[in-house]
Design a protein around this nucleic acid. Structure first.
Lengths: 146, 146
DNA sequence: CTTCCTGCAAACAATTTGCAGACAG
DNA sequence: CTGTCTGCAAATTGTTTGCAGGAAG
């Protein structure tokens, strides 16, 4: 699990650049996203932050996530039925493998997506700015358990 | 715009096979999905059905969509913030181009996705059953308007 | 006839918002 | 100091659910 030592600093810099303030609660959210692993949801972030700042509410977490989105320092993975998940480490779009049994999300890569995006753009006239690619299936661990 | 004459029949057959009933309201939903174009949301379907059956409620539309999902005869395109959209014509997963200005959704294709799925599955051990690929951008029409 | 479906209203869940007091810069 | 942020509670929105009467098969 690669722990980019510069992620937290990048977040802080961008937040300050755009004139947002750094509060202890926000810092705790950023740290959790920059240093923690996985793809936490807002509740999970909240639980972690509350350990250090017990008065923190979910609303504050959401507001902090809104700031991070505004400065482009978090990748939001949206789910219609379920709660959204967040990635503070890899903030550019990338493919995900999502287990439909346990909900775990695994990062992935795809070399051919860039060329495909270009091809689609020139074929359709769309100005493509982003994308999302998810694969749904059953992870190795869940396959074993019966 | 390809109008598959067998879509409605396929839907009806699968619904009957699995023991669900055909009601006038349901038939109207199916027709709208099988014969209409685009990627309507539940509200849009509801509006169309209400023209013929004014007492129909949104709940009935949702319940019909649930039946269609259960028998695998509709593709649900989920959106976290926005309402979901439905495709009754192409029910297997396929790439979408989504305009971030007007919300229009355009269907697309990608030959390389199948091989990519296979590669990912063998590399990660995931048993992949489905996927979703969306490209976000500005459609040609919206680029022109200022 | 029996079981499933409709329509209505209430319930839900994740996220957002308004506001008064608190605090970062 | 001043404008932004926090915490609280209420609002929002798309979707789901429970139930009583109605219709499909």
């Amino acid at each position: 699990m690669p722990n980019d030592p510069g992620r937290l600093e990048s977040m802080l810099r961008r937040i300050r650049e755009l004139g947002f303030r750094i509060t202890p609660q926000r810092l705790a959210v950023l740290k959790f996203l920059a240093e923690g692993g996985g793809h936490p949801g807002a509740e999970e972030i909240h639980a972690s932050v509350k350990a250090d700042f017990p008065t923190t509410t979910l609303a504050t977490v959401y507001k902090t996530l809104a700031v991070l989105k505004a400065v482009g320092q978090v990748l939001e993975i949206e789910f219609s039925g379920d709660h959204n998940r967040y990635d503070g480490k890899r903030i550019e779009p990338h493919p995900h493998l999502i287990c439909i049994k346990c909900g775990r999300i695994m990062d992935s890569d795809c070399e051919s997506l860039a060329s495909m995006t270009e091809k689609l753009a020139s074929r359709t006239g769309f100005k493509i700015v982003s994308h999302r690619l998810d694969f749904f299936g059953v992870c190795p661990r869940c396959q074993k358990e019966r």
